[in-house]
């Protein structure tokens, strides 16, 4: 379960304080599929980064399975990201010097999984997202949709409970976007918690829960 308490993030821009998040209290139960909507600058991505342990709050807390992530050090946060969270980015963010298989295996590499086991699992994950025949291609040789599917496979490589998507369909066409949402829905049915930030109403409609944000606050 994920819970935020009075979660606040302030960025200092010159002389002025900019509130990206103000006192956000949110609870996401295990196995929920939640979409966060809102205009640019409303704090969606900041919230996602806090939940994903990429960033630390100015005040307040984020609890993941009862652990206050703000109290963790850099290494413990890295471990948390590695073991419990899978990231899917709008820009795919694959490592361009590595092929699809190696990209998917990379989180397992950081987790210290043995090479053979790593490559076996990466292969299995790529077959599952329909890329069994594109494993040895570099990201530059793959289409946007294919790259995003590699990214999804990578997010799953350490079998995390939580999948975080920051506009996962933002850089692909509608058709591909639907296919990606199908995969995410499937992962949710397996019991994983899915948190997606989006502009897209159609994408949001597929989520079980929708939250709107404005000016660093969660509405509804």
């Amino acid at each position: 379960m994920i819970r935020t308490e009075h979660l606040t993030k302030v960025y200092r821009m010159g002389e002025a304080d900019v509130y990206a998040l103000r006192e956000v209290n949110l609870e996401i139960k295990d196995g929920e599929f939640i979409a966060i909507l809102g205009p640019s600058g409303s704090g969606k991505s900041t919230l996602l980064n806090m939940i994903g342990c990429l960033d630390t709050p100015t005040s307040g807390s984020v609890f993941i399975d009862g652990i206050d992530t703000a109290s963790l050090n850099e290494n413990e946060r890295a471990e948390m990201r590695r073991e419990k969270i899978g990231f899917i980015f709008q820009q795919f963010n694959l490592i361009h010097t590595l092929n699809a298989l190696e990209n998917v295996a990379l989180p397992m590499f950081f987790a210290g999984v043995k090479r053979k086991k790593r490559l076996e699992r990466a292969e299995e994950l790529l077959v599952n997202v329909g890329l069994g025949d594109r494993m040895y291609h570099k990201p530059s040789e793959l289409s946007g949709g294919e790259q995003q599917r590699v990214a999804i496979a990578r997010a799953l490589s350490n079998d995390p409970e939580i999948i975080i998507g920051d506009e996962p369909t933002g850089n692909v066409d509608t058709e591909t976007g639907r296919a990606i949402m199908d995969i995410l829905e499937g992962l949710n049915k397996e019991g994983r918690t899915i948190i997606v930030v989006t502009h897209n109403a159609e994408v949001a409609a597929r989520a079980g829960i929708r939250k709107r944000m404005r000016d660093g606050r969660v509405l509804d």
């Binding site: 890295a78 471990e79 590695r82 963010n93």
Partner: peptide, 16 residues
């Protein structure tokens, strides 16, 4: 820089 960020996001430690 971007690549380093991605590696960290998917679980690389500072020491990695």
């Amino acid at each position: 820089t971007h690549e380093i960020g991605v590696m960290k996001a998917i679980g690389a430690k500072d020491s990695d």
